[in-house]
């Protein structure tokens, strides 16, 4: 019996609907069929169902035990695979973290100036001495003395005639002042 493409399409839909309904052919024809099949279409549907029924049980094959065991082993191995990957990633991350921490620690303790002495006390004393010379501590007695020297210098410039002996005296006072500053300021008794 030759059906055309459209007829085969109708029969395929009809057979699928019948299988979903769970009814047998006759019951489905009587109740529930989505549309009527032509006689030719109905014969084709019945022939397919009969031929398929003839095969029932004939194609079955015994499942070997080793096939099942092999499939089981494959499943177990594949299920364990993500955990193995996670473990490897975890170890790699931990190792990378340890290396990074070691680098950070090494850098933090590494001296920035390779030529600097390990003991910085000498450097500190030197900087204190330099600071003391450039920024000497202020004492009242020294301030007073300096002020008096300036006043005397000014008086002499005004009262004495220009030239010879006066310049010598000023120079002498200036020299005394300079020598005073060169002495250790700490020797000046506290006022």
């Amino acid at each position: 019996m030759g059906l055309n493409e459209q007829q085969y399409e109708r029969v395929a839909q009809w057979l699928d609907a019948m299988e979903v309904s769970g009814r047998d052919f006759a019951a489905f024809v009587q109740q529930g069929q989505p549309f009527d099949l032509s006689r030719e279409e109905r014969l084709a549907a019945q022939q397919v169902l009969r031929d398929e029924a003839l095969l029932e049980g004939a194609l079955d094959v015994e499942l070997p035990a080793q096939a099942t065991q092999r499939a089981r082993r494959r499943a177990v191995a594949e299920l364990a695979r993500p955990r193995r990957i996670l473990l490897r990633v975890g170890f790699a991350a931990a190792a990378a973290t340890a290396v990074a921490a070691a680098i950070v620690i090494a850098v933090s303790f590494w001296p920035t100036n390779p030529s600097a002495p390990a003991n910085d006390a000498v450097g500190q004393w030197a900087s204190q001495w330099i600071n003391a010379v450039e920024n000497p501590p202020r004492h009242d007695d020294v301030d007073i003395l300096a002020m008096q020297a300036e006043e005397l210098k000014a008086d002499m410039v005004v009262s004495l005639p220009a030239g010879g002996p006066v310049d010598y005296q000023i120079d002498s006072i200036q020299q005394s002042l300079d020598e005073f500053w060169l002495d250790d300021p700490a020797s000046v008794p506290a006022g």
Binding site: E9, A12, L15, D16, E19, Q47, D51
Partner: peptide, 25 residues
């Protein structure tokens, strides 16, 4: 179903039925 097989082979269900019908015959 014929429709499900048609989805695998990407052809109309009627084509599947035609092949099955002829093959079984």
């Amino acid at each position: 179903s014929f429709k499900e097989i048609a989805e695998i082979f990407q052809c109309p269900p009627g084509t599947v039925l035609a092949k099955v019908h002829r093959g079984l015959g």
